[in-house]
Design a protein around this nucleic acid. Structure first.
Lengths: 212, 212
DNA sequence: AGCATTTCTATCCAAATGGTCAAAAAACGA
DNA sequence: TCGTTTTTTGACCATTTGGATAGAAATGCT
């Protein structure tokens, strides 16, 4: 009987650890191969255990994928939550951009997993997108619109501003193969330093309010 | 015997038409489901023919995918080829951005196909990326760097500028599900009109040279 | 130690799927 | 019209793969 079925509520230390290992391995495999391209075999091998063992802990391949996605969504939007009405507008937005960029640098597999999910039509995320995420984005967009109206930053569509931050930062994680194919050989972090400089400059110019 | 095997060199009208139909159907299926998620069955159904018939014309599923990708790459970079040293710098770059945005609007399936390929590590495109594409990008980046040095546009890294155009424009095609989940209901083209306005404004501010 | 529970895997199974084959149907050329 | 070639598909096959089963090994409990 699998643990998923038994599910006595409490989780032992060994269960937590094994699940951890499996999720790590699954992230490696899913992020590159996608849900359909990944096989239980590959995940099991990456996790250093047998295929039935993986099933024992999660019940099904889809369950692992769903679990990864679920725990990811929360982390993924967290930088936006911290954008505060009370801070300096320019600083708040640039800080948000930088935190997203750091996430791309430090969690490229997570970024790719999320990207693949959306790209394929977000079958198991759509509800969250148009629910919690929309609520959050609308809320923060309102803050930005406020700054805009007060003349503290330039007049621009706050939703599209947020999209542009997503697009630009995630690009460096999701399409890193392309980026690195074109750029001269740069060590992992150097690329992100370049990106930081460019994006900081770009968003600074974009946000700077027109002279009154 | 399949046509792919026989391959007498010449292609009849009926062959061209059937291949066309199959490629169209395959694009529909691949762009949403990915290479592994798509099945010959689905492609055949979408093309209105039997599974062996699809094999008859292309030999294998992978061959269809490869063919789609190949013919796509050329189209995909063509707007960049038109960026000319002789034009007005700001106009040239904004025009390039707009053409890319239009491609996202008019060819979202192609955009997603390409995105998925890169996301999964570009296994069959890497050579082209670091070859022809890199050459082209380096060439155009040099033009932009020239404009930059002459003070006709702001000082900025031309490679990252190009990446930013890719990232922003493709975002609206590849992540349209997310974008539309968050934005209030807007008809297909209205979204791209908004995006056009935002991006034009963003890149104008980014590129405008600092006062001498 | 001895029993019960949990952890783990070898083996197997059924469904899905990419692709083959032989033959029917259609199109073509004389 | 009649033989030839091309087009089309139903039936079939081999492999892959997600997952079930049963039992072995380990662990925990008393």
């Amino acid at each position: 009987m699998t643990i998923a079925q038994r599910n006595t509520g409490k989780e032992t230390r060994i269960q937590r650890e094994k699940r951890e290992v499996i999720l790590k391995a699954a992230l490696d495999v899913f992020s590159i191969q996608g849900l359909r391209g990944a096989t239980l075999e590959k995940i099991a091998e990456a996790a250093g255990m047998s295929k039935p063992h993986v099933i024992y802990y999660f019940g099904s391949k889809d369950a692992i994928y769903a679990r990864l996605l679920e725990s990811l969504l929360e982390i993924w939007v967290s930088p936006l939550r911290d954008l505060s009405r009370d801070g300096d507008p320019m600083t708040e937005i640039l800080t948000y951009m930088r935190r997203k960029l750091k996430m791309s640098r430090d969690m490229p597999r997570e970024s790719k997993l999320f990207a693949t999910e959306i790209l394929h039509g977000a079958p198991r995320t759509k509800a969250t997108l148009s629910g919690d995420l929309k609520t959050l984005v609308d809320e923060k967009a309102a803050i930005i619109a406020g700054w805009s109206a007060e003349g503290k930053i330039a007049r621009l569509d706050p939703h599209h501003l947020i999209f542009s931050i997503w697009a630009m930062t995630q690009h460096y994680a999701d399409f890193d193969v392309q980026v690195r194919s074109i750029l001269p050989e740069t060590g992992g972090d150097a690329l992100f330093d370049e990106a930081d400089a460019f994006l900081t400059s770009m968003f600074t110019r974009t946000l700077r309010p027109a002279k009154a």
